[in-house]
């Protein structure tokens, strides 16, 4: 079963670029990536540009409305994701708990809908 791990955190809660903490944190993320690859659960995973770069789009009465900003203004914002292929929810929770941001933010795990 595939699970999407959505990574939310408050801006500024992760270490600043260029600091030793940042380097340590990058190493941690790389380690997690490698763990996923070695375990054969990694489908994909990416970090997103910050929320200031977001554009939200909707179509109303046939017209495209474009808005500057994220879908919802929240304290913790979506900052990245992993798509993981796991046996069940227990395994998905186990791997999602390894994501460094789980310690200062929140990771939401959602199963991918099986349409096959």
């Amino acid at each position: 079963m595939k699970y999407l791990a959505l990574i939310y955190s408050a801006p500024g809660s992760n270490p600043d670029y260029g600091t030793p903490e940042f380097a340590a944190s990058m190493e941690e993320w790389n380690k997690v990536n490698q763990t996923y690859i070695d375990a054969g659960v990694m489908v994909s995973g990416d970090a997103l540009q910050d929320v200031a770069t977001a554009t939200s789009i909707r179509i109303r009465d046939g017209k495209t409305e474009t808005m500057d900003g994220p879908f919802a203004e929240t304290k913790e914002q979506l900052g990245g994701y992993y798509l993981l292929d796991c046996a069940d929810l227990d395994e998905a929770i186990k791997y999602a708990a390894m994501i460094p941001a789980a310690r200062y933010g929140t990771v939401e795990v959602r199963p991918i809908m099986d349409l096959g």
């Binding site: 079963m1 699970y3 796991c86 046996a87 069940d88 929810l89 227990d90 998905a92 959602r110 199963p111 809908m113």
Partner: peptide, 9 residues
């Protein structure tokens, strides 16, 4: 839908 296992941990 979310794959909660039917298993003794």
């Amino acid at each position: 839908k979310s794959g909660v296992p039917f298993r003794i941990p």
